[in-house]
Design a protein around this nucleic acid. Structure first.
Length: 223
DNA sequence: CCCTGATTCGC
DNA sequence: GCGAATCAGG
């Protein structure tokens, strides 16, 4: 698999968006986690919170004292780890739990716990027992089609994203009809009002809490 | 063990 | 340029 423009764009978006290399690799398909990381670095993408470099010390760098002597990959290898099969999706059901809507289905709210809180922009979060309708901050908006019509002429491409349009992904990157919401954003936020409600959910005090959805990416895939 | 990103280095 | 192997921290 080669790094096409679109794949690179997706990589950038997800990397900068905070998705892990594993998620990105799985999303892109045909590439390993290492490939994603390597490419990201080659692209000059900054290293985000990495576990290794968490505690960066500004002391005199001891450079590389022992570079492993002779590190031969082409020979003398005890055992090779099974590489990711490019033609097969292992679908390692790891599911970090971040449940993300892959389709804009407004009335489909699986199992929201009782949440009554206010998001950063004043978005009310309510549980299923409560009213789900009242989200009045904005005037009547045109509803995003729940079922993508065959003609997605006005779809928002990855390259069409600006600071003024909602960048909530519809579907998954790489899929034929993958695009972005494209609505006008809620001022000060990367998403439109509707998707702000999805993106920003207050943490529950404790006890029954839902896995945080930092970003729309990483949603459960059906493969 | 699992995860993560960083780095190396043969190709 | 690519990415598997490897490293190293959490």
């Amino acid at each position: 698999m080669s790094w096409t423009d679109e794949r690179i764009a997706t990589l950038k978006k997800m990397w900068e968006g905070g998705s892990t290399a594993s998620q990105i690799a799985e999303e892109l398909g045909g590439v390993s986690r290492n490939a994603v990381i390597g490419k990201a670095h080659r692209l000059g993408l900054k290293s985000r919170p990495s576990p290794v470099k968490a505690g960066e010390k500004k002391k005199a760098p001891a450079k590389k004292p022992a570079p492993k002597a002779a590190v031969k990959k082409t020979a003398a290898k005890p055992a090779a780890k099974p590489a990711v099969n490019p033609t097969d999706k292992p679908a390692t059901a790891q599911a970090s739990g971040a449940s993300i809507p892959s389709q804009p289905i407004p009335n489909k709210t699986p199992d929201l716990p009782k949440i009554v809180s206010v998001g950063p922009g004043g978005f009310l979060r309510q549980g299923p027992g409560d009213q789900q309708a009242p989200i009045p901050p904005a005037p009547p908006r045109r509803l995003v089609p729940a079922k993508p019509s065959p003609a997605i002429e006005d779809k928002t491409s990855l390259l069409d994203l600006t600071e003024k349009i909602c960048r909530w992904p519809m579907g998954h990157p790489g899929e034929p009809d993958f695009h972005f919401c494209g609505e006008a954003v809620n001022p000060g936020y990367p998403y439109c009002v509707e998707h702000c409600g999805r993106a920003y959910q207050a943490q529950l005090p404790r006890g029954a809490r839902r896995p945080p959805p930092p970003l729309p990416f990483g949603g459960p895939r059906v493969r």
